[in-house]
Amino acid sequence: MIVTKEKPLEEILGFLTPYKKILVVGCDGCTTPPRGLREAKTYSTLVEMSGKLNNKNFECKATTVAKQCDNHDCATTLTPQIENVDAILSLACGVGVQTLVEVFPEIPIYPGQDTIFLGSQDRDNANMYEKCISCGDCILDETGGICPRTRCPKGLLNGPCAGHMDGKCEVDREKDCAWVLIYRRMKDTGQLDKFRAFRKPRNYQISTSPQQIVWK
């Protein structure tokens, strides 16, 4: 899932100040937590109330799109709703915001969220964990299914460094040292020879941004 975090209301108000009629657009797509109609209505109300606190009279309306990264979906769902809209507050990830800009270039579009990582959800602990940095060169076969590019802050490929303590990372003692996890897993599954192997430096060229592929 793409994990996003709400921007502080103060910041959102900062860029909505010049406008009056705001359309708050949620996204029912893949963000975690989902930022659908409920979130759109919440922000629609909060922006209005916040505006009143600052002597601004916003008129907000809430709506949602199945996937804001799909330009066709955006166009068909939102075109009937954008008449007289001065600005759009998008609650999608960064991809959704930019897609809306392409579909409605004449309307100012603003992000209501910060997109933070690709991660998994642990409902019991109410936590989201970053798991993948989309490097384009997956080595999970060599590391027992644990990604060191993501889970080691230094991105070491011949880890661990000498900073681990009680199996935790020197950068954040609340987090596991990815390489200790990899070592233990490789040992338990009889793959220590893979652990011993020398891994060459990462090829950054393949992930030069912005990337693009052909998709039929």
């Binding site: 937590p33 109609l37 409920r38």
Partner: peptide
């Protein structure tokens, strides 16, 4: 009604 109150798409 707990489900109704948590559903993100109402």
């Amino acid at each position: 009604g707990l489900c109704a109150a948590v559903c993100p798409v109402l």
